[in-house]
Write a protein that binds this DNA or RNA. Structure first.
Lengths: 216, 216
DNA sequence: GGCTCTAGGATAGAAGCACTATCCAGTGGT
DNA sequence: ACCACTGGATAGTGCTTCTATCCTAGAGCC
């Protein structure tokens, strides 16, 4: 198919497709002649990937470029998934070493949970984030890390066994990125509900206690 | 103090302060004369709040305006905290009723966890998000909600009992917003690490199985 | 009374992002 | 022959968050 048809099929304007081509998100079509190019279904699926990463996950052009570049370079799938995780959860764009105390929260968590002691982006990001929290005056105790990681261990355990990865690379990135993002948001929303619920319960208890004076 | 001193103390440029004044984030100082105004320490603390909400939490001017307006209107603290939660966790900016099936994920969760059955923003946001996930082809089973909410119940339980709220309103919003944001991000990062850890473990098991052929 | 500094108001510019639009000249297909 | 469509280039748009400039009127100081 050619550009116009690609545009009509995917619902992306021709101008935008040109933009993505310029930006290197979409590989050039097969140039039949100087003024004619053919696009494959691969292009359509790539376009859908771009679309989803922009509108659903909210990545920037730059981030999408990084991901599709990896895909086009044919890096191993595990590596690709790691990159998706980095990007979707904003584990990139970390200051990476503002000095300070090592903080090594990752070590503590890994030991607490008996997780494999392997360096990873997620671990670096955790260290950086904990350091950031401390520097902003929000203390992170080992007890907190223990409670949090124990709970999330259960979630991850469940998630990982409910996962099947598609063959096609575009689709792999798509499902991985969208899934991670949506599940992450789901966690945040459930946490909000949980906190609200606990707050209400606590508030009610306090009110009850005030009515019937404390017996301490 | 006057504008320049306010600027020097908080590290916010005079131009930015003027901008915030125009935008209604910062209340006008006490106008001593036509060309002179006095700012109180309240202004400094408000400015710090604005600063933190922008750079740490990443709110927009519009969102900050909404929050400080509530603070200035002196709404009850519980209501204020609810608004902070809405804003920080992006529970605002939801489509609010794109029709479709009711989905009522909130009901299910509340029943599963035995949480108080009270309508709330968090619950609406959860419903909306689950509906969105479904519409994007990501299934949300009751079993998943059960596993997630059980884990987050534990976290919320721990959080709520480790909380003390400051008296000053600016400070209240600041600590609440920053705390919510950072704890949310912490959860996401820990989840990433947990998933990566489980993936590694699973990968190793698979590899081991391949070496010593399965005995099923 | 002059000099310098500052407030406050207005307006314009700047920078980043993701497009969107326009113009162009060269074909491919009918 | 003709017209739709092409790649390539370049410029403009809309939004957000500032930042800079210019102005006048008044305050404090000598």
């Amino acid at each position: 198919m050619q550009l116009k048809e690609l545009s009509e099929r995917t619902g992306v304007s021709a101008a935008s497709i040109k933009f993505y081509l310029r930006e290197g998100l979409l590989p050039a079509g097969e140039s039949v002649h100087a003024t004619r190019a053919r696009y494959s279904p691969q292009h359509a699926s790539r376009l859908q990937l771009i679309q989803a990463l922009r509108t659903v996950v909210g990545l920037t052009i730059e981030q999408i470029r990084t991901l599709v570049k990896l895909a086009d370079d044919g890096v191993p799938r595990l590596e690709l998934l790691a990159a998706v995780q980095r990007t979707v959860l904003g584990l990139d764009q970390m200051s990476t070493g503002h000095g300070d105390v090592p903080a090594q929260a990752g070590d503590a968590v890994v030991r607490l949970r008996n997780w494999p002691d392997t360096p990873s982006d997620a671990r670096d990001a955790l260290d950086a984030h904990v350091a950031r929290m401390e520097s902003l005056g929000v203390p992170v105790t080992t007890e907190l890390l223990d409670a949090y990681s124990k709970a999330l261990d259960a979630i991850a355990d469940r998630d990982i066994s409910a996962t099947t990865a598609p063959e096609d690379t575009n689709e792999l990135i798509l499902t991985a990125a969208v899934g991670m993002h949506l599940h992450g948001q789901l966690v945040l929303k459930l946490l909000a509900l949980a906190q609200a619920s606990h707050a209400i319960r606590r508030y009610k208890n306090d009110a009850a206690k005030r009515n019937a004076p404390p017996q301490k």
